[in-house]
Amino acid sequence: MGEGDIHIRRATADDAPVLQRLIALHRHADEEDEKVDRYRERLDSLVVNDQHHIVVAEAAGQVLGYAAAQDYGPAPQRDWSIARMHDLWVSPDARGRGAGTALFRAVQTWAEEQTRIRVLEWQSLEVAAEFYKKLGLSGERVDEADPRELYEIEVHLPGATGVE
């Protein structure tokens, strides 16, 4: 299967149980993070929340992974908002086929199409750093003492000039 076989679409409530099973099956592949776990447990309600943009990658009718982002809305002192990508996850046996890139591009396109979103941000573990480098992105180390090796990554979107 090549990249052409992968289809990205907006997640529905019907996808949440499938995603929960995939995550549980491959939980050992990710670093334990209570905040991330709580987010994933709420996927069934978040897929129908307009402030969240959750997309799935599928091939031959099988869900391979998903990406989830949230528009935080404008802060009181500005008329633009920051969106955060909470999760980008592809089943380990489906990696290397372009699903992760397609999921990231779908989130980036969504953020670019929202007139008020000017910055897309997220944190990445060291294990995913090479993936983001292939996309032309790099991040700054969050905390040198943090054993999880988290990197903060930001993408300033078109029209985002002057963003502080």
Rank of each mutant, 00 (worst) to 15 (best):
A13F: 01
L88F: 01
A24E: 15
L135P: 04
Q20P: 00
R10S: 08
V47Q: 01
T115Q: 13
L135V: 05
G65P: 09
A128D: 08
I8K: 04
L125D: 10
M1C: 08
A129H: 08
V48G: 09
H53A: 08
V119I: 14
R116C: 06
Q70N: 06
Y151I: 04
D93F: 12
G162W: 01
L25S: 12
I82W: 06
L64E: 04
R148V: 10
L120N: 06
Y132M: 01
V63Y: 02
E149Q: 13
A75F: 15
Y66R: 08
A16Y: 12
A145K: 15
G162A: 15
G136R: 02
G162Q: 07
Q70F: 13
D50Y: 06
V47D: 00
Y66I: 05
P74Y: 07
R42S: 05
A75Q: 13
P74I: 07
R148K: 08
S45P: 00
D71G: 11
A160E: 03
A13H: 06
Q70E: 15
W110N: 07
L64W: 12
L22S: 06
R38E: 14
P74C: 12
L103H: 05
I6T: 01
A68Y: 12
A128C: 00
R42L: 02
H86D: 07
Q51H: 13
L137Y: 00
R141E: 13
H156I: 14
I54P: 00
L64K: 00
A83S: 11
H156S: 11
G159I: 01
G96W: 11
F131E: 02
A24W: 05
R105I: 14
L120G: 13
H52F: 13
A111Q: 13
Y39R: 12
Y151R: 12
W80Y: 13
V163F: 07
R21K: 14
L88N: 03
P158G: 05
S45Q: 09
A68R: 03
D71C: 07
I117T: 10
E154M: 14
F104H: 03
V90Y: 00
E121T: 15
Q123D: 10
Q51E: 15
S138A: 14
D79A: 11
E113S: 14
E58Q: 11
Y132Q: 00
V163W: 03
R105P: 06
L25D: 10
G139E: 03
H52P: 01
A75N: 09
Y39D: 10
D37C: 02
